[in-house]
Design a protein around this nucleic acid. Structure first.
Lengths: 200, 200
DNA sequence: AAAATAAAATACTAAGTAGTATGTTTTTGT
DNA sequence: ACAAAAACATACTACTTAGTATTTTATTTT
């Protein structure tokens, strides 16, 4: 069983270095050579574990990126407490928590979406899965809020969920253009204004 | 003066084909060779008119992409009429007007932002210029609305402008993941809900 | 019409690309 | 301890990349 563990460890190493490099330099412009140089292994090791760069890309999406979005934006939505407050703290808190590096490089998922989603259906599907889970969590929370009378019953949970996600992903891109947090502060203000109107 | 015209025409041809290819396949993965094959000219012609691919990229941003955003999203904001209605028709109308191709490939500006804005300051500056103009137009319209009592004086024009832009750019990316317009319809609903709250 | 200049073509370089073929080393089951 | 298999290394292929050097063709200026 030691060999299997070692194999898993190597795959994880490749996955980690890939994610870092894809995030920093983009998927298409990060070569397999560069990745393997980062792992201090060789190309032979790579093609022993992965059949292609595409397969690696899909695995980075379905593990690393998925986990990042889950931990940061989805799991928190299933906490207890006032629905509206939960939305505010999750979105606002998350964006405030980003490091400078993360602000400068945007959202890893959004980068993937905009770089390669229109090129291969497989990427599209893998990324859509994450968005759908995020959307479902938001809808679930909004519906709970409606039941508990903390959210206006007349609004469309679907529409609000999509609008929240869009604005969040959008600002992660826009922020790349600036050298300060003004746009993020504006976003946070815009968000809280938006959420206020969801009150009953 | 005929030579100068011919030169201009060639540059425009290169610019047009570049824009199309960058939009379809991304900036970094579109080679100069591919572009010149599309123009039916040769590499010699390219490097006679542009000193590098980077220079071309910057010119595509400051001409083609800028014009696209101006025509579609900025100029319409300076029309007469109720400010809130103008916002609704501009945003909602624009997104409804996109061809299937444009929906599948997202926003050319947003693609550039997410693909290369964090790599070169020059790209950052060129793209930021467009966003700033867009933001200024929105703020101007919102302030006019406040004066004319069609928009709530208590809201921050800055924050609303950024939130509108973020959500719009965000949805252009998200739409790439889907094969139908459901998310766009949700976005439009979310937008109109958002705009409603701007009323005095 | 000749000289000068601009536009474009041809042929190249040096470096990078994904992926393969064939080794060697390490681990595992017997 | 030994054969089999898994993990990894080395060396390669065929192709693409941005950019350059040099030449040919078209246009303008004198």
């Amino acid at each position: 069983m030691e060999q299997k563990q070692k194999s898993e460890l190597t795959k994880e190493l490749i996955l980690n270095e890939s994610f870092k490099l894809f995030y920093k330099e983009g998927f298409k412009t990060t070569s397999v050579d560069k990745i393997m140089k980062a792992t201090k292994l060789t190309k032979g090791a790579f093609y022993h574990h992965y059949k292609s760069k595409k397969e690696l890309g899909l695995e980075v999406i379905s593990t690393k990126i998925q986990k990042r979005v889950y931990d940061g934006m989805i799991t928190p939505l299933y906490q207890d407490g006032n629905a509206l407050k939960l939305l505010e703290t999750t979105f606002s808190g998350r964006i405030k928590s980003f490091s400078l590096y993360d602000k400068q490089h945007g959202c890893p998922m959004n980068n993937f979406i905009n770089e390669i989603a229109d090129e291969e259906e497989a990427y599209q599907i893998a990324l859509k899965r994450i968005i759908e889970e995020w959307k479902a969590a938001l809808i679930h929370l909004l519906e709970r809020g409606k039941l508990e009378n903390s959210i206006n019953k007349d609004i469309s949970s679907n529409a609000v969920a999509i609008y929240l996600i869009s604005a969040f992903e959008g600002i992660r891109g826009i922020r790349k253009l600036y050298n300060d947090d003004q746009v993020i502060d504006d976003y946070i203000l815009g968000l809280s204004l938006y959420l206020k109107q969801l009150e009953p």
